[in-house]
Amino acid sequence: MNAVREIAAAPRPVRLKFEIGARTLLSVPRALVRVPLTLAEARSGIAPVLPPIQDDADGYLVTSLPEAQMAALIAGSGTMLPFVRQHYTRYFLDFAGDYDGWFASLSSNARQGLRRKAKKIATASGGAIDVRRFRTTAELEVFHPVARAISATTYQERLLGSGLPEGTDFLRTMGTLAAADEVRAWLLYIAGEPAAYLYCPIHGDTVIYAYVGHDPKFNDWSPGAVLQLEAMQDLFGENRFTAFDFTEGEGQHKRQFATGGVECVDLLLLRPTVANRATMAALGGFNGAVALAKRVVNKAGLAGMAKKLRRGA
Score class of each variant (00 low, 15 high):
46 I>R: 14
6 E>Y: 00
219 N>Y: 12
244 F>D: 02
171 L>W: 03
119 K>G: 04
252 Q>H: 10
13 P>K: 05
23 R>T: 14
117 K>A: 15
313 A>P: 02
264 C>Q: 07
260 G>Y: 06
96 A>R: 11
122 A>T: 07
39 L>A: 13
224 G>C: 08
231 A>H: 02
91 Y>E: 12
195 A>K: 08
28 V>A: 15
78 G>E: 11
239 N>V: 10
223 P>M: 09
175 G>C: 07
127 G>E: 09
237 G>F: 09
206 T>R: 05
275 A>T: 10
110 A>G: 06
27 S>T: 10
269 L>V: 01
185 A>M: 04
82 P>C: 01
262 V>P: 06
252 Q>S: 10
74 I>G: 10
17 K>T: 13
216 P>W: 00
291 A>C: 02
55 D>R: 14
45 G>V: 10
165 P>Y: 11
56 D>K: 13
45 G>L: 11
292 L>C: 02
287 N>T: 00
180 A>V: 01
210 A>C: 02
164 L>Q: 07
111 R>Q: 15
136 T>F: 03
176 T>R: 13
24 T>I: 11
124 A>I: 00
278 A>V: 14
118 A>V: 00
117 K>I: 08
15 R>H: 11
260 G>C: 14
72 A>K: 13
91 Y>A: 12
81 L>N: 06
130 D>N: 12
151 S>H: 12
70 M>D: 01
57 A>M: 10
185 A>G: 03
75 A>Y: 11
220 D>Y: 14
148 R>C: 05
267 L>A: 05
290 V>A: 04
308 K>D: 15
38 T>H: 04
193 E>M: 05
261 G>N: 12
215 D>I: 03
142 V>H: 06
238 E>Q: 09
49 V>Q: 08
268 L>R: 06
234 D>W: 08
202 I>G: 07
304 G>W: 11
4 V>W: 01
241 F>S: 00
295 R>P: 03
132 R>L: 08
211 Y>A: 09
136 T>P: 06
262 V>N: 02
8 A>P: 09
128 A>H: 15
311 R>N: 14
11 P>L: 10
210 A>D: 05
17 K>Y: 04
16 L>T: 02
200 C>P: 04
259 T>G: 14
212 V>L: 07
258 A>F: 04
281 A>D: 09
140 L>V: 07
107 S>E: 12
123 T>C: 00
201 P>R: 04
10 A>L: 15
297 V>R: 03
166 E>G: 15
71 A>D: 09
282 A>P: 07
158 R>K: 15
309 L>I: 13
52 P>E: 11
